[in-house]
């Protein structure tokens, strides 16, 4: 059983979590153009590496950020948004 540590609920089976993709800045919808918006909606940083990702602990609906190596599946740390990283 692979474990992930939710910043609020503690270490739990990875099956209690869902990943919502990499943390990335959203372009301002009022000023951006179609091309940049399309790139934001679809394109992603698909190569392997250490990434900051949004995760949710589903039984408690706790959203947080996990720093994870997408090559080795090593979870380096987890923290709530806005917490000093």
């Amino acid at each position: 059983m692979k474990l992930m540590t939710c910043p609020v609920n503690g270490a739990r089976s990875i099956s209690e979590f869902v990943c919502a993709g990499e943390v990335r800045p959203i372009p301002d919808p009022n000023t951006t153009n179609d091309l940049a918006w399309g790139a934001f909606v679809f394109h992603c940083n698909g190569a392997a590496g250490i990434k900051q990702e949004w995760w949710c602990h589903t039984p408690s609906d706790t959203w947080f950020i996990a720093e994870r190596n997408t090559q080795t599946d090593e979870i380096l740390r987890t923290y709530l948004w806005g917490e000093v990283a």
Binding site: H43, C44, N45, G46, A47, A48, T70
Partner: peptide
């Protein structure tokens, strides 16, 4: 390995692994 090769040529794609 597509995203890795695309990084080499500087193309962006929606591909996720």
């Amino acid at each position: 390995s597509t995203p890795r090769i695309l990084d080499l040529v500087g193309l962006r794609s929606p591909i996720y692994i």
